[in-house]
């Protein structure tokens, strides 16, 4: 049984006792008001009532630590999911790399990096709700040529490499780095036009960020979704 608070009890003491403030207001409601909207008086009574104002101020002061918790947005520590992801993906013994030959050596760029850049830029196109990026074909061994897709590679935009053609710059562990974008689009948009926009954005992005030249970007519209009210901005999931 709850002990009834004395006449000098503070608003905190009254919580859970079904006892009102001297002015008749319910302290639990005042606490709810503070936790949801802050300590601002919401009606004429509260604005003129010292009991209510004292209660609002006290609750606000005591609730401050919880506001700090709510404002804190901790992120999953980097790396906490790496082992799980590696297990689920499997670990390729022969990852795809694109290669840029420079004057003093060469730069290798993982195919997954290219795919991630492609996804990033595809997702930012208006009308795209979600996008997935991947290499169009994978699994070639070093030095293999793909007779069906002789040009499905990412090759260097460097003039010297261009002269050697895709095969020369296709990478040290694979010759198949063409990009496929799978996306969900807003219902009602011109899908061929959207695909063209996505393709242009991906080509420009990959070219700008990697110096590579995507020679094939296939776009698969996998789903159309009804636009959400009040939304028109592109999907975006990087940099959360």
């Amino acid at each position: 049984m709850t002990e009834r608070p004395g006449p000098s009890a503070s608003a905190v003491d009254l919580l859970g006792t079904e006892t009102a403030l001297p002015c008749g207001r319910d302290p639990q409601q005042l606490l709810e008001q503070v936790t949801e909207h802050g300590p601002v008086a919401v009606d004429d009574h509260q604005r003129s009532c010292l009991h209510c104002q004292a209660a609002l101020a006290e609750f606000d002061r005591l609730w401050a630590p919880m506001r700090a918790v709510a404002a804190d947005r901790p992120q999953a520590p980097p790396g906490v999911l790496d082992s799980v992801l590696s297990s689920i993906r499997g670990v390729s013994e022969d990852p795809e790399f694109a290669r840029l030959d420079e004057g003093y050596g060469h730069t290798r760029i993982s195919g997954r990096v290219v795919a991630a850049i492609a996804r990033h830029h595809a997702a930012r196109v208006a009308g795209v709700r979600g996008a997935l990026g991947r290499l169009d074909r994978a699994g070639h061994r070093r030095g293999d040529r793909d007779p069906e897709f002789p040009e499905t590679s990412v090759h260097s935009a460097q003039p010297s490499d261009m002269a050697r053609g895709p095969q020369a710059s296709a990478g040290v562990a694979g010759a198949s780095t063409a990009i496929a974008i799978v996306l969900a689009a807003d219902y009602g948009v011109d899908l061929p036009a959207l695909a063209d926009e996505v393709r242009a954005a991906v080509v420009a992005g990959v070219r700008a960020y990697t110096g590579l030249e995507p020679v094939s970007v296939s776009v698969v519209v996998d789903e159309v979704l009804l636009p959400r009210p009040g939304e028109g901005e592109p999907a975006h999931s990087i940099g959360s």
């Binding site: 790396g79 992801l85 993982s110 997954r112 990033h120 994978a138 990087i238």
Partner: peptide
């Protein structure tokens, strides 16, 4: 499970948003 090349999922180590 299909085997695909591994990479990091972490977008904070993903692509710098310099666009």
């Amino acid at each position: 499970v299909a085997r695909v090349p591994a990479s990091t999922l972490d977008p904070r180590r993903d692509i710098p948003d310099v666009g």
